[in-house]
Design a protein around this nucleic acid. Structure first.
Lengths: 127, 127
DNA sequence: TTGACAATACGAAGACCTTCGTATATCGTC
DNA sequence: GACGATATACGAAGGTCTTCGTATTGTCAA
């Protein structure tokens, strides 16, 4: 199975809607997107058709209004994107990326606590 | 001052060389890049000219072989890229991004320790 | 069965990205 | 001053991304 291409910006916007909503029609996706930025219905349709060709989504054509579903779960795509950025801009250094992530946004205390737990778990495994 | 555009893949490759080497000529950048993937000299030249137009780099034309310099330090661009990814794929959740970063790569123990220190520092500030 | 509506299919335009070939300018040296 | 070597400038091709208008198909109801 060929690897999926890195989603473009517009494709990622659509994937986000599909991850949140689950299987959706073009109309449902379009309505969500149009809320933020007005766009033509056929733009969303075309994007979903292209994404189907690329394998980023699959579609169920059993009904008149096709249902689109993401091919990969959100976590997997996020991991792909982070790994990609790691290679392109961080020479593979995860710690540097984490450093920038936390300096890019003021993270909430709960988030910091979550990360700390994650570290505990990871260091436990290494032993 | 207008914000700089997000660097493309090819542009980022060049920026990485400039960050590592400091001010460099086209030839110097090209030689570094050609080591990994063969390419025409004029391709690198053209990219640097475009990057100059965009403001990603500046150049010193006082010598025959122009010297190119990054406009932003590496850290700032990294912060921009991470913040961008945070918005596009993580709904702004830094902790989720960190989670994916660490699951994307087996991080070395030293790196985990670094991150832990960073957390200590951040939580210290919040108090 | 036809008309109105809602959906998909298709093509194309315009912007950007990436690459490269060719033309032109500049420097040192014989 | 002419030649070779080394620079930069420029234009264009080919690909991808994004958007949209128009054509076509399918469905339901009067």
């Amino acid at each position: 199975m060929a690897d999926l291409p890195r989603p473009t910006d517009a494709e990622l916007s659509i994937l986000r809607v599909l991850w949140r909503r689950g299987p959706s029609t073009v109309k449902e996706v379009h309505d969500e997107l149009a809320r933020r930025a007005p766009a033509a219905y056929t733009t969303t349709l075309k994007q979903l058709q292209i994404m189907t060709e690329k394998g980023l989504v699959t579609r169920d054509e059993s009904q008149r209004a096709h249902l689109y579903v993401t091919r990969l779960p959100e976590e997997q795509t996020q991991t792909q994107l982070v790994g990609d950025l790691l290679d392109r801009a961080f020479e593979g250094s995860a710690s540097r990326l984490v450093l920038r992530a936390l300096s890019s946004r003021p993270a909430k205390p709960e988030e910091l606590a979550e990360i700390r737990e994650l570290l505990d778990r990871l260091e436990g495994e290494t032993k």
